[in-house]
């Protein structure tokens, strides 16, 4: 590669970073604007919108509701995904590829179709729109990711570790809890945070499966439809900071796992 193409590429990279960050930075800035009108230039600054958000019980309730959904979803996805991975990973059986394809299916279906099909299915199962339906929908969506991450980790667990546990008196249940599960820990932390993010950030499933009680993205969407306001920026910024921290944490634990230092 010549010097000029190298420089050109680094320029493209940094332009791309700017493209990713500038809209978010502007959005955060707008949350400090001392005016109800969204738009530039910003002449005066205030914390009022943030204070308003933290005092608004409705927003706080919505936040807690989203959190409850995300935590339940994460727990269920981890249990189900780990179970599927422990079945698909070590065993060979006819039709394994089909089961694997079915496991990945929810991850490749376009969002709107996933939401619609789950809406119909919830009706079929007599689950009313609301928390239960959203948790089911998010879990279905998250299980493929957990399964893939756990399967990858499981593939690196030496068979002899399980055999050693069995040899020392553990039955398969005890061997799983004492040896396999601790080994999966970094994968479960990474996948778990990833599930929290997917659930917490999801709009389309929460929108079609929810009742009158909105989740945080649905609330922001509803507020946006009735007009932009710095209040939305303040809410969004809180979400942004939280998700970014969780994301970095998840990424770190996954990288560390792949490097094998844990």
């Amino acid at each position: 590669m010549t010097r000029s193409t190298r420089i050109l590429m680094s320029v493209i990279y940094w332009a791309f970073v700017v493209y990713l960050f500038v809209p978010l930075i502007l959005m955060v800035m707008m949350g400090f604007k001392d005016s109800a009108f969204i738009g530039f230039p910003i002449k005066a600054w205030t914390f009022e919108w943030y204070l308003g958000v933290f005092q608004d019980t409705k927003v706080i309730n919505v936040f807690l509701y989203s959190m409850a959904i995300a935590l339940s979803t994460t727990f269920l996805s981890l249990v189900i995904g780990t179970w599927i991975a422990s079945f698909l990973g070590p065993y060979k059986f006819p039709g394994k590829l089909i089961v694997f394809a079915l496991t990945c299916l929810p991850a490749v279906i376009p969002g709107i179709i996933s939401a619609i099909s789950l809406r119909i299915y919830a009706r079929f199962l007599d689950i009313d729109p609301g928390m239960m339906a959203i948790i089911l929908g998010h879990t279905v969506h998250n299980v493929p990711f957990v399964t893939l991450v756990v399967m990858a980790r499981l593939a690196t667990l030496p068979k002899s570790h399980i055999e050693a546990a069995r040899d020392l008196g553990a039955d398969s249940i005890v061997a799983f809890f004492r040896v396999t599960l601790p080994y999966l820990r970094p994968a479960l932390i990474g996948a778990g945070i990833f599930c929290m993010l997917l659930s917490f950030d999801d709009f389309v499933r929460a929108f079609f499966l929810g009742s009158y009680q909105p989740t945080l993205p649905v609330l922001i969407f509803a507020k946006l439809r009735s007009g932009m306001s710095p209040e939305i920026n303040a809410i969004s910024t809180v979400v942004l900071v939280m998700t970014a921290i969780l994301g970095i944490w998840a990424e770190r634990s996954m990288r560390r796992m792949n490097k094998g230092t844990e």
């Binding site: 990713l20 993010l197 969780l246």
Partner: peptide
């Protein structure tokens, strides 16, 4: 590059609205 990626669909869509609006 990953940090903005973690932020959800709605928040990022809103960010684009602020970027491209008439003001």
């Amino acid at each position: 590059l990953l940090i903005p990626f973690w932020v959800g669909e709605i928040v990022r869509t809103y960010a684009i609205m602020i970027l491209l609006g008439n003001t």
